[in-house]
Amino acid sequence: MRAILDIILIALNLYTWVVILGAILSWLIAFGVVNMRNDFVRSAWNVFLALTEPFLRPIRNMLPNTGGIDLSPIVLLLAVMLVERIIVYYIYPYVF
């Protein structure tokens, strides 16, 4: 059981980095630092959208409109951290 929980924790940690890198890439695209006409940038953006958008879209629908600021990645990161803490502090110590 510990191995499964370790795999879940590693996956959550990797997903945290995917959300952070997706947010940074969206800023770089929005400010024109990277060009969406580049094949690598477009494919990387599509990968980040495919991995994060199913979780970010419902959060965006629940949050109030804040203009040009998207707070949904922060809420998603907080939710991922909450799940990690629940696993580490409540489930993981009791596994024998």
Rank of each mutant, 00 (worst) to 15 (best):
L28K: 04
I29V: 15
A30N: 13
A30L: 11
F31W: 15
F31P: 03
G32C: 07
V34M: 12
N35G: 07
N35M: 13
N35V: 08
N35L: 12
M36A: 08
M36T: 07
M36H: 06
M36G: 01
R37M: 11
N38T: 07
D39I: 10
F40E: 10
R42F: 06
R42Q: 12
R42E: 04
R42T: 01
S43I: 03
W45C: 05
N46Q: 15
F48E: 11
F48C: 11
L49E: 13
L49V: 12
A50Q: 13
L51F: 09
T52P: 02
T52K: 08
T52R: 08
E53A: 08
P54M: 04
F55I: 12
F55Q: 07
L56W: 03
R57W: 01
R57D: 01
P58Q: 09
P58F: 05
I59F: 04
R60Y: 04
N61K: 15
M62D: 05
P64S: 09
N65G: 04
N65R: 15
T66Q: 14
G67I: 04
G68H: 02
G68Y: 02
D70E: 11
D70C: 06
D70S: 06
S72Q: 07
P73F: 06
P73R: 06
I74H: 00
I74C: 05
I74R: 00
I74N: 00
V75R: 01
V75Q: 04
L76C: 07
A79I: 15
A79P: 02
V80K: 04
L82H: 01
V83M: 12
I86T: 06
I86K: 00
I87C: 03
I87F: 01
V88N: 01
V88I: 14
Y89E: 13
Y89I: 02
Y89F: 12
Y89H: 13
Y90I: 11
I91N: 04
Y92G: 01
Y92F: 15
P93M: 05
Y94Q: 14
